[in-house]
């Protein structure tokens, strides 16, 4: 198995179940456009999911749920104190027996935060500045409205526009064209 395919094994399952995020779906569709093995695997997963679903539906039909709500209510025990009340009691016990430790811990945490926060802020700002895209798509005119463009920021200043003209069987009809560019103000993608 190709290493590229290996890293898509988990995503293929989520993709075939319709549980992949839009970004994951775009990545999988890009990969599927270049890999016949994974296209076949997606078809197998969809067939398996359909079989399991039909089997479970048949099992559920055999179960009598008429007394389900009553059974659940019977199992619920007597009222317990609420979460806030339990936390208040817990806090009171801690303060009664470990007051000094609590105060010194809070003071240490505050000092650490005061020192670390500016450093973390600097690092975050620097890393955000490093992610400024080097290619920004402003406009795109498609000659053929039936093709599916996939725009991907590949990192390292690379932007890829690819046309998935061989979508996974069955996926094309269900999913709209994926267009993941962020045009600047005034862009008219």
């Amino acid at each position: 198995m190709e290493s590229a395919c290996h890293s898509y094994q988990m995503l293929l399952s989520a993709y075939s179940d319709g549980e992949a995020s839009p970004r994951e779906r775009a990545q999988v569709e890009l990969h599927l456009s270049s890999c016949g093995d994974c296209r076949a695997r997606v078809e197998d997963l969809k067939a398996l999911a359909a079989t399991v679903s039909a089997h479970l539906r048949a099992q559920v039909d055999e179960v009598d749920f008429s007394s389900f709500a009553d059974d659940v209510l019977k199992r619920i025990g007597p009222d317990e104190p609420g979460l806030v009340e339990r936390m208040r009691i817990c806090w009171a016990e801690v303060m009664a027996y470990h007051r000094t430790a609590v105060i010194s811990s809070v003071a240490t945490a505050a000092v650490t935060l005061a020192i670390a926060a500016p450093l973390i802020w600097q690092l975050a700002t620097r890393s955000a500045a490093g992610q400024v895209p080097q290619v920004v798509l402003r406009q795109m005119q498609l000659e053929n409205p039936n093709i599916q463009p996939v725009v991907m920021d590949m990192g390292d200043g690379k932007t890829l526009i690819m046309f998935v003209d061989q979508p996974a069987p069955g996926a094309g009809a269900a999913t709209p064209p994926v267009l993941k560019a962020t045009p600047p103000t005034g862009g008219d993608l």
Partner: peptide
């Protein structure tokens, strides 16, 4: 291009790839 006519901004070091 034969299938698409994109307009884009590019800074030094950028790389644009299109099918």
């Amino acid at each position: 291009a034969p299938n698409n006519a994109p307009t884009f901004d590019m800074t030094p070091g950028g790389e644009f790839i299109q099918q």
